[in-house]
């Protein structure tokens, strides 16, 4: 914890959420997250793509920052970034190694120089480290997060031969999508049992319509139709579609519509063609689109 002063420099991965990210709560997830954060219990977000997991984390980072600012007895200005909660997001991919998270030596003009990885930085600064799609990462990465998720709250850096205790504000949040159900890409139990899990699913039709309308700025009626389209397409999950239409997709359609693209065409390019390559399913979805949109 004593390291905080030493590592004061800013890095681009650090992200303070300045404005309130739009997020519509579907249940008590905000309260749970807040409680878990207060208790520093790591959080696992489950759910299909485009259900707002990332947005939720951003929203929570902002909300918790606000909370910190409000709690500040001196009423210090919120621009004092130290008192905000940074959010460091790492999108995991199959080539993501432990050193990508922890840090590595880089060659310098004078020799080598150590650069902290995003996880290390979050640990040092006491921010939220959000590992998106954790199952995609290589197996060795999951091991290094284990000590961070239990009472130890520490990060071992092999190459430096040091162990860093996490700053007080640090919290690990990971997400994964059980939808790609695949024996190979499942979280190990030793990992998953270190988190409290929040399940995400698509919001209900009405709420989704609100979200679409807000995010895309399209007419509410269009948003309602888009939301209906989303519901209908999600019915095809497991029947040819691996994933249902994400809210994000629908928002994109809404944006295109707002730009003046015709309803059907907008849905086709942002939903139908995006969601599948199977011509037959595309045709079926097109039929749904042409039913819903005149």
């Amino acid at each position: 914890m004593a390291t905080q002063q030493k590592y004061n420099e800013r890095n681009i991965e650090e992200y303070y959420v300045a404005d309130e990210p739009f997020y519509v709560s579907t249940s008590d997830e905000i309260e749970i997250f807040e409680s878990a954060y207060r208790q520093r219990v790591p959080i696992l977000l489950k759910g299909p793509t485009g259900t707002g997991k990332t947005r939720f984390v951003e929203h929570m980072a902002w909300r918790l920052s606000e909370g910190i600012a409000k709690r500040n007895p001196n009423g210090a200005s919120p621009s004092k970034t130290d008192e905000k909660l940074p959010l460091i997001t790492v999108a995991c991919h199959e080539d993501l190694t432990a050193s990508d998270l922890v840090g590595r030596y880089l060659l310098d003009a004078d020799g080598t120089r150590w650069i902290d990885g995003p996880l290390t930085r979050a640990v040092k600064y006491g921010g939220i480290c959000y590992l998106d799609e954790i199952v995609e990462a290589r197996k060795d990465t999951t091991v290094i997060i284990h000590p961070l998720t239990d009472h130890r709250r520490s990060l071992t850096i092999d190459k430096l031969g040091t162990t860093i205790d996490a700053a007080d504000g640090f919290l690990l949040v990971v997400s994964y999508n059980p939808g790609y159900q695949n024996a190979l890409k499942d979280l190990k139990h030793s990992t998953r049992q270190r988190f409290v899990a929040l399940e995400f699913d698509f919001p209900d039709e009405e709420r989704e319509a609100q979200i679409i309308a807000y995010e895309s700025g399209c007419e509410l009626e269009t948003a309602e139709r888009l939301a209906r389209l989303g519901v209908k397409i999600r019915n095809l999950r497991e029947h040819g579609l691996e994933e249902g239409a994400s809210t994000r997709m629908l928002i994109y359609a809404g944006r295109l519509i707002k730009e003046g693209v015709s309803n059907r065409r907008a849905c086709q390019v942002s939903v139908t063609w995006g969601i599948t390559d199977d011509p037959q399913i595309q045709r079926s979805i097109d039929e749904v689109v042409t039913s819903i949109f005149a």
Binding site: V231, K232, I233, N235, L236, H239, G240, Q280, I281, R283, S284, I285, E287, V288, S291
Partner: peptide, 15 residues
């Protein structure tokens, strides 16, 4: 048939 079937599945959510 397949197209209609999938269309129906989408609309009703039932197979």
């Amino acid at each position: 048939r397949d197209i209609i079937q999938m269309y129906c599945l989408a609309l009703t959510g039932r197979a």
